[in-house]
């Protein structure tokens, strides 16, 4: 088998890797945002306790255990989940629990006086969240989100255990067929790195677009007056 053919097969796996990563990141984002929103819009003790408990429990469960529970366990209870769905419900939700913590910290960094100013204008809790807390929270959370999305990429090979033909799976197949494991896994590693770089570039573009003087990393700041 020519090396170019092998690369093509790895690349076909990379498409699934990106698919799994994007789907799980989207799930994580949805879970994290929902949690942050509930925390601020319904700040009742019961809601806060439930959110804390969710984050606590799901950050403690190994991804693989939850994945198997969803994919192999749930059918026993009559619920069938697709491989991608199972990845979203395990890796996606666990990452969502981590993101919820990232967002919680970012929400705490929003100036209480600004929140009070918005309330004193007559905004509802939802409006305060939407117009003041959310936009600031997202900007404060960039480093934490990059971290979490990178983790999702690195956990995406678990998709192979439920039959998703992603990149690691392809590398495994190729190396057992050709016995050229070193080159193949090296190539796979480089491809993972490229996907990672792509993710970073995407974040940088967004960051630049949303950049606000006075918010975000110090090295991007102009000097204040």
């Amino acid at each position: 088998m020519a090396f170019s053919e092998m690369l093509a097969q790895l690349a076909s796996g990379a498409v699934f890797t990106v698919l799994v990563t994007v789907a799980c990141c989207a799930t994580a984002l949805a879970v994290g945002l929902l949690s942050a929103c509930a925390r601020r819009v319904f700040p009742f003790p019961a809601v806060i306790r439930a959110l804390d408990l969710f984050a606590f429990v799901f950050r403690g469960i190994p991804v693989l255990v939850l994945l198997f529970l969803v994919y192999f366990g749930l059918p026993g209870a009559g619920i069938r989940v697709s491989p991608l769905g199972a990845m979203m419900l395990s890796l996606g939700v666990i990452s969502g629990a981590y993101l919820a913590e990232v967002f919680r910290g970012a929400l705490d960094a929003v100036d209480a006086a600004e929140i009070m100013a918005a309330q004193s204008m007559g905004m509802s809790r939802w409006q305060v969240f939407l117009h003041i807390e959310l936009p600031q929270m997202m900007r404060f959370s960039v480093p934490g989100m990059v971290n979490e999305f990178t983790n999702v990429l690195k956990y995406s090979p678990f998709g192979y255990t439920v039959g998703i033909p992603e990149m690691t799976k392809q590398a495994l197949v190729l190396s057992s067929a050709t016995l050229r494991g070193v080159e193949i896994y090296l190539a796979a590693g480089i491809l993972y790195f490229l996907v990672y770089r792509l993710l970073l570039v995407g974040v940088r573009v967004l960051e630049k677009h949303w950049r606000v003087p006075g918010m975000g990393p110090a090295h991007l700041q102009d000097q204040p007056v």
């Binding site: 600004e114 100013a117 007559g122």
Partner: peptide, 20 residues
Amino acid sequence: VRSLRQQIGFLFQQFALYRH
């Protein structure tokens, strides 16, 4: 309460401008 607040302007010691 929300319409009451809309009729009353409030200025804070620390200005409280929305920084974003």
